[in-house]
Computed example of a mutant assay.
Amino acid sequence: MTRALIADDERLMREQIRGRLAEVWPELEIVAEARNGLEAVELTAQHHPDIVFLDIRMPGQNGVAAARQIAQLPTHDESPNGDNWPGCEIVFITAYDQYAVEAFEQGVVDYVLKPADPERLRRTVERIRQRIGARDAADAAAAPLPTHTPDMQGLLQKLAAQLNPAPPTRLQWIQASVGQSIQMIPVDEVLFFISDEKYTRVQTASVEALIRKPIKELLEELDPEMFWQIHRSTLVNARAIASVTRDLRGRQIVSVKGHPQKLEVSRSFSGLFKGM
């Protein structure tokens, strides 16, 4: 059974979405409802739904920020406890006069208009069912989730800029610990970032350093056209990618110019390299 979560700060809107979904997709199970973005992320981590309906404007944390955090949750190939969750589809709840609906119409992500239009919701449901069916047939290997594709990441950045009109300040330097000293590392010299639970490793062609900033914060500060996320814990400088190959287990492996380490691409982010 397909499972969904609804996140909207308006109770009546949540009830309307639930009711309309019952009409067009009676088999869909609503496992939880959230009143804001923070609850949406927490409940997604707890219930592992197949679909999350996110209102774009919510107090505390908006739907775009929540979507970016949901994309960071461990999936089946990243979770240390073996959870068999492939991630989820994102459907934004929005209005005509606030956001670029034409971007949604290009198929990057689905949306529901306020008030929920039955015909629009029916088309959304049909597309989602087709994508879920394709992933099931391909065992999720050949059909990456939209949340983890470059197009989706670009749309999330565009929507975030609309919600926060001030232009983002891109990180130009990394202040990092190298042995007993602190070094200033130009961002464009970084080959990749790899995080564990406590530190993030900063790797250049000649320097390996540590910082305490997690990947999700770096994502907000780095230029997304320069640094691509290929794993929940890994960012790679696109200009430093030498090649992408597959190992004996079928996993995509990135080779980096000027460094011997091979970087694994999680299945959730395999859409970055569609030709593989």
Score class of each variant (00 low, 15 high):
residue 136 D to W: 10
residue 101 V to R: 09
residue 116 A to T: 13
residue 149 T to H: 02
residue 151 D to P: 02
residue 120 R to Y: 07
residue 178 V to A: 10
residue 131 R to Y: 02
residue 139 D to F: 09
residue 151 D to N: 04
residue 176 A to K: 04
residue 113 L to E: 07
residue 183 Q to F: 09
residue 172 Q to F: 06
residue 183 Q to D: 01
residue 129 R to Q: 14
residue 113 L to A: 05
residue 108 V to Q: 10
residue 146 P to Y: 05
residue 142 A to L: 14
residue 126 E to P: 00
residue 130 Q to D: 01
residue 184 M to W: 00
residue 149 T to D: 02
residue 131 R to G: 04
residue 128 I to M: 12
residue 167 P to Q: 12
residue 173 W to C: 04
residue 177 S to Y: 01
residue 115 P to Y: 15
residue 166 A to K: 15
residue 118 P to D: 15
residue 162 Q to Y: 06
residue 104 F to D: 07
residue 106 Q to H: 13
residue 175 Q to F: 08
residue 161 A to V: 01
residue 153 Q to V: 11
residue 128 I to E: 12
residue 137 A to T: 01
residue 123 R to D: 09
residue 153 Q to P: 00
residue 181 S to E: 15
residue 152 M to F: 15
residue 184 M to L: 14
residue 129 R to G: 08
residue 122 R to S: 13
residue 138 A to S: 15
residue 184 M to G: 01
residue 112 V to F: 11
residue 103 A to T: 04
residue 101 V to T: 09
residue 140 A to R: 03
residue 126 E to C: 03
residue 103 A to W: 01
residue 123 R to F: 11
residue 106 Q to L: 14
residue 180 Q to T: 02
residue 160 A to D: 13
residue 160 A to E: 12
residue 157 Q to W: 15
residue 131 R to H: 09
residue 148 H to E: 07
residue 152 M to H: 11
residue 107 G to I: 12
residue 181 S to K: 14
residue 152 M to D: 02
residue 104 F to N: 06
residue 173 W to I: 11
residue 113 L to N: 08
residue 102 E to M: 05
residue 151 D to R: 14
residue 109 V to H: 00
residue 182 I to V: 03
residue 146 P to Q: 01
residue 136 D to C: 06
residue 148 H to W: 07
residue 111 Y to L: 10
residue 115 P to D: 03
residue 172 Q to C: 03
residue 172 Q to G: 14
residue 101 V to G: 05
residue 165 P to A: 14
residue 174 I to S: 10
residue 146 P to H: 05
residue 103 A to F: 08
residue 102 E to F: 11
residue 141 A to E: 09
residue 160 A to K: 06
residue 113 L to C: 03
residue 107 G to R: 07
residue 134 A to G: 05
residue 174 I to M: 13
residue 125 V to D: 05
residue 118 P to V: 13
residue 165 P to F: 12
residue 149 T to K: 15
residue 100 A to W: 01
residue 153 Q to I: 08
residue 102 E to S: 08
residue 178 V to W: 09
residue 168 P to E: 02
residue 164 N to C: 03
residue 102 E to C: 00
residue 137 A to M: 10
residue 176 A to F: 08
residue 153 Q to T: 07
residue 125 V to S: 10
residue 128 I to K: 01
residue 167 P to V: 07
residue 185 I to C: 13
residue 181 S to F: 05
residue 116 A to G: 08
residue 183 Q to K: 15
residue 180 Q to P: 02
residue 142 A to E: 11
residue 133 G to N: 14
residue 147 T to I: 08
residue 128 I to Q: 04
residue 183 Q to H: 10
residue 119 E to G: 02
residue 122 R to L: 03
residue 107 G to E: 08
residue 121 L to Y: 07
residue 109 V to P: 00
residue 119 E to T: 11
residue 113 L to K: 07
residue 130 Q to R: 12
residue 166 A to N: 09
residue 176 A to H: 03
residue 180 Q to A: 09
residue 111 Y to N: 08
residue 132 I to W: 10
